[in-house]
Nucleic acid binder design. Structure first.
Ligand SMILES: [Mn+2]
Ligand SMILES: [Mn+2]
Ligand SMILES: [Mn+2]
Ligand SMILES: [Mn+2]
Lengths: 219, 219
DNA sequence: AAAAATATTTAGATTTGTCTAAAAATATTT
DNA sequence: AAATATTTTTAGACAAATCTAAATATTTTT
């Protein structure tokens, strides 16, 4: 199954977006891929006809198992190339994404596996993300409760434990959303509260109840 | 100046074809790039409007100095990636061309220069072809065709005239590589075949076609 | 120098991936 | 439950890169 660069970029974007929600909307995808919703709809129809997506018009989309398999191959290549750039070519970890965005589309399977071997079969890329193996198996950084993080761990919020308006009001007030990055500073035994650092917004205190309602992945 | 993969492939093909003739015909280019002459004409018009070619309808085409500069960047990338594949990833020299055909279009200048450094600034690729430096300067090998050597001349193989798998298969079988030393024993008028002596492997016969595909320097 | 053969360009169509504007479906607010 | 707002799809257009078939230019042969 040969895919164009554009098709591969859509497959990969859907893979990442559906991690969070399970299903992905047209607008989400358009924003992510920097195109217009109309273009997304066209591509969804094409990839659906290739049996890579499960798509119900107006109801969002997710990857078929075939689509997921392809997505994992692309993610594998992306993360292996990032590892190569940092470990072998001395790129900074913040300079590699753009280049890997191109390299991930090189098609040779043999190249990928030789590269993997050359790098010593790394399990994680320079950003700490897991690298799928040559069978497409990727360890899941299963998300963990914020309460369980040890001090000085960096993490990214990826879901909330309830939809209650009260919780959402508090999160809004504290400017915490899905995707917000933080570092646990310290934990207090007395009330199980945490002090966390929000990127560029300084330290704030989180109650036990609030921490319990937040799920994060470490980064 | 951003070029598409297709445009880059045309620029590189013209570069290689004009080595021989000075100017390149539409049909030559169509055969080389596996397209139809009509498609070539369209592309020639486009690249001419970008000032990369000197093109007179019906009279053939050659690269402008700007076009030549771009061609050398692509050739540099192609040959550096081939070197990487052979020296670092243990590819056979007959397996790298196709993959390099894709890798040569990765655009990051920084990547190319870091790769060059990582490989120890190699001067020649695995097929013995010279690698342009980061300023686009490429040494021209004054090398001679094996067919033109007189009997009892000693020489060293330094490049091959084509990358075809058929040629590379034959060379592998006869155990002839870049760097192999030989002495021409005698030449036969009937079929233009040569008998050559390979160091430590005795005399073998080389067909006219094979001799024509081998370039050597005398030693 | 004509005629024939070959090479090249033009005309018009097709596929891919994108866009804008308008229509239709869904979600939210009153 | 209507009205309003938002999201998504459809319709129609466009640029890039290719193709086939036809027209034109050049080269070779007679
Ligand atoms: Mn990409
Ligand atoms: Mn990464
Ligand atoms: Mn290429
Ligand atoms: Mn080469």
């Amino acid at each position: 199954m040969h895919l164009t660069v554009s098709e591969e970029n859509y497959i990969k974007a859907i893979f990442h977006l559906q991690e969070a929600d399970g299903t992905v909307s047209t607008n989400q995808l358009a924003a992510n891929i920097h195109t217009k919703p109309a273009s997304v709809t066209d591509m969804l129809k094409k990839l659906t006809s290739k049996r890579l997506l499960l798509y119900k018009p107006y109801q969002g989309v997710r990857l078929s198992s075939e689509g997921r398999k392809l997505a994992l191959e692309i993610v594998r290549k992306h993360r292996l190339w990032e590892s190569f750039l940092v470990d072998k070519l001395q790129f900074g970890w913040d300079e590699v994404h753009e280049v890997a965005e191109e390299l991930e589309h090189i098609s040779s399977k043999k190249l990928v596996d030789k590269l993997d071997q050359f790098l010593g079969n790394p399990r994680f890329d320079p950003h700490g993300d897991p690298i799928p193996d040559s069978n497409g198996v990727m360890v899941s950084l299963r998300q963990v409760n914020l309460l369980d993080l040890k001090p000085l761990t960096r993490a990214e919020v990826c879901s909330v434990g309830s939809q209650s308006p009260e919780l959402l009001e508090l999160l809004k007030h504290k400017q915490i959303l899905i995707g917000t990055r933080l570092e646990v500073q310290c934990k207090f035994e007395f009330d199980h509260s945490l002090e966390i650092q929000l990127e560029a917004r300084g330290n704030i205190t989180i109650s036990q109840q609030l921490a319990q309602a937040l799920f994060v992945k470490t980064i």
